[in-house]
């Protein structure tokens, strides 16, 4: 396996930057996820790595070899496409063997390697089946086998689970993780689903508007976001844009809250990110508690989501479904405090 490095990679489409000066260093054997909303440039970044798009500038280096201008077939990478891109007129075997035959391997070696690859994805019993007869999950496995059979240095996934139903997504996610751990192949996995990224990846790059906003482990990103977008995208934080005074008072319209000294920042425009689980229900009269009106209650099993309004701002709150939360009804008044470990202040606007 090999390390993969991107240096200042940029790609424009019709004058619009899809990927803008991206620097990444992905370690050998690492499971690396690229996470971001639709249109953020993550798929373009993956296609640049695979060689399906040519970078306008910058370089891509794999295991010390500059592959920026290499054809996809010479990059030693395997890609699993979002819609799998299996050749519909071929059988499972023919699809997996396609890359080996393109490299003029002998029949026996092709057979052996296809068998190993299909074995790895538990698809040996469907070797002779035509692709259109397979279920979505099976097609996904064949696509993985087709990519793995070439023993690539890097395995690329482009939102491979987005065409599967919820239950199958969870089980396939676990299979992919196991397969990656066993094969040890360096993996780049593109997704817009933060749950997928958090559970699968060793490290995540969060992208927006073609720019990588932050790279880190799932925990680092969640617990120490470096910008409001990352805080909002990964933790679903409530983002309030307002003014911060020198005395540590944050104000957005009528909403006014005193920050602890640990959260002081230079006075001026600032964004306050409050994680929904960092807003804690409190009793009336507890020092520092703030009153709010319950607007909506959504029971979600072990937790309950509340939509509350306080001093002109609307906040999303997640609380355990304990008796206190279960008795809440829209229109009721509650009091809350902030767990400042789960709140972040970023100078400037979002």
């Amino acid at each position: 396996m090999a390390t993969l490095s991107l240096h200042q990679v940029t790609k424009q489409f019709r004058g619009r930057a899809a990927v803008c000066g991206v620097d990444l260093d992905i370690a050998s054997g690492e499971f690396f996820a690229v996470l971001g909303p639709s249109g953020c440039g993550k798929t373009t970044l993956l296609r640049l790595i695979a060689g399906y798009e040519k970078a306008d500038s910058g370089s891509i280096v794999l295991g010390g070899r500059d592959i920026t201008h290499c054809h996809p077939r010479d990059r030693e990478m395997g890609m699993v496409f979002q819609n799998y891109a299996l050749f519909p007129q071929m059988t499972v075997f023919e699809n997996v063997a396609f890359g080996l035959e393109s490299r003029h391997m002998g029949d026996r070696e092709v057979r052996d390697r296809v068998k190993v690859a299909l074995d790895a994805v538990h698809m040996t019993q469907k070797t002779a089946d035509p692709v259109p007869t397979l279920s979505g999950g099976e097609q996904q496995r064949v696509a993985v086998a087709r990519a793995l059979v070439l023993r690539p240095q890097v395995l690329l996934f482009d939102e491979p689970l987005s065409n599967l139903d919820a239950a199958l997504r969870t089980s396939t996610r676990e299979e992919i993780k196991t397969l990656q751990r066993e094969s040890g192949v360096t993996t780049v996995y593109v997704t817009h689903d933060q749950g997928e990224g958090m559970t699968l990846a060793d490290r995540i790059a969060v992208m927006r508007d073609g720019v990588v906003r932050q790279v880190g482990t799932p925990r680092e990103l969640y617990e120490a976001p470096e910008d409001p977008f990352v805080a909002g995208f990964l933790g679903g934080a409530n983002l309030l844009e307002g003014l911060l005074s020198a005395e540590g008072i944050f104000q957005q319209g009528a909403f006014r809250i005193v920050l602890p000294p640990s959260h002081y920042r230079p006075p001026g425009r600032a964004t306050l990110a409050l994680k929904p689980e960092g807003i804690l229900l409190a009793g009336e009269g507890i020092p520092g508690s703030v009153p709010a009106r319950v607007d909506a209650v959504e029971y979600m099993g072990w937790m309950t989501t509340l939509r509350i309004a306080s001093q002109g701002v609307s906040l999303r709150v997640i609380v355990p479904s304990l008796s206190g939360a279960l008795s809440l009804r829209p229109g009721m008044t509650i009091w809350f405090t902030i767990d400042w470990e789960k709140a972040f202040v970023f100078p400037g606007g979002e």
């Binding site: 296609r47 890609m79 496409f81 891109a85 050749f87 396609f98 393109s102």
Partner: peptide, 14 residues
Amino acid sequence: DGALIDAAAGLGSR
């Protein structure tokens, strides 16, 4: 589907 041609190219097919 463009992905089919990309896939073939990536798998080494000319």
